[in-house]
Write a protein that binds this DNA or RNA. Structure first.
Length: 303
DNA sequence: CTCCAGGGATGAT
DNA sequence: ATCATCCATGGA
């Protein structure tokens, strides 16, 4: 099946650090969208997809393109969004580099759980945790003859033990994930109903969950609730912001950074953030690392 | 405000 | 083969 997808780069979108379970396969990727299993491949201004799953998708084949288009946010006016970014050298480089990158709409629980696991972890490690959770607790599906796993529902994770979760390399995050799963499974935390909340209220609700602070809450708002104004500040973004917009200013508090980003990057700040993030990470080896020790710096070859 | 647990991958030596 | 570095939350 072919789905029209102008201004879309599948590889960029899946590898920019917003989602962690897609696996390279042949000329495309295999993964899940909720309870759908699929293969997706970049085409000319289009997405070529193949659906799998056991049993066959229950809903009509007619509904499937819409589900894929919604997941990849093909409805976002990407040209307008990019045009709204501030015009400065750093932002312009990131915008050119990340052409076709879209902020996707992930299932809320899956996104929340994954980002609770992401704390103090690097992207490569988050991938492993996400896949281990799926393999141990999630349901199986087949696509293109290979086995993949769905993300386990909150009810399933809630019945796990902390030790079982620790076997998925969660470390101290196991306790937080378990506690949050119980709140979501019991209905005490109603992730779907929270869609109706304002940004500030939604962030406050999310931050009440164990293992969720401002950064994780903003990631969930951006990647699952479609709040494209949300601006998660991790170490990468903080580095970019400080170097680019606060050069040789001391004492820039997190509060100050948050106020600046909301004002400077505007209503599509989340997009700007992801572009800056992905560009900084992708070019890390061609830049001098600012926090390398003096000893390392002296010995390393000039480049 | 500061300090620090936590743990596995990743990269340098 | 060792050693340093990366990372967010939450509690002291």
């Amino acid at each position: 099946m072919t789905i029209p997808a102008p201004d879309f780069d599948l590889e960029m979108t899946l590898n920019c650090g917003q989602v962690f379970h897609w696996r390279k396969y042949r000329d495309g990727f295999v993964g899940t969208i909720g309870d759908l299993a699929l293969y997706a491949e970049q085409g000319e201004r289009a997405l070529k997809v193949r659906f799998g799953g056991t049993p066959k998708p229950a809903r009509g084949t007619r509904a499937l393109p819409g589900i894929v288009a919604r997941y990849f946010s093909l409805d976002h006016p990407l040209k307008e969004i990019c045009a709204s970014f501030p015009d400065d050298p750093t932002m312009n480089k990131a915008r050119d580099f990340c052409r076709g990158l879209r902020i996707i709409r992930q299932p809320k629980w899956e996104c929340l759980a994954t980002f609770i696991c992401s704390s103090m972890k690097q992207v490569a490690h988050i991938r492993q945790i996400s896949c281990a959770l799926r393999k141990r607790y999630g349901g199986k599906a087949m696509i293109c003859g290979i086995t993949i796993y769905h993300f386990p529902a909150p009810e399933l994770v809630a019945t796990a033990t902390e030790n079982g979760l620790r076997k998925c390399a969660l470390g101290y995050r196991a306790k937080n994930l378990l506690a949050t799963a119980k709140r979501v499974a019991s209905g005490e935390a109603d992730l779907e109903a929270w869609s109706a909340l304002s940004g500030d209220e939604l962030r406050a609700r999310l931050c009440e969950l164990p293992g969720v602070g401002t950064k994780v809450a903003n990631c969930v708002m951006l990647f699952a609730y479609g709040r494209i104004t949300a601006f998660p500040i991790d170490v990468w973004i903080e580095r970019v912001l400080r170097q680019t917009y606060f050069a040789r200013k001391r004492k820039v508090t997190p509060r100050r950074l948050a106020e600046f980003t909301a004002e400077y990057f505007g209503p599509h700040g989340g997009y700007a953030q992801q572009y800056l993030f992905h560009h900084a990470r992708s070019t890390k080896n061609s830049q001098r690392h600012p926090q390398r020790s003096r000893r390392t710096l002296k010995k390393s070859p000039e480049r």
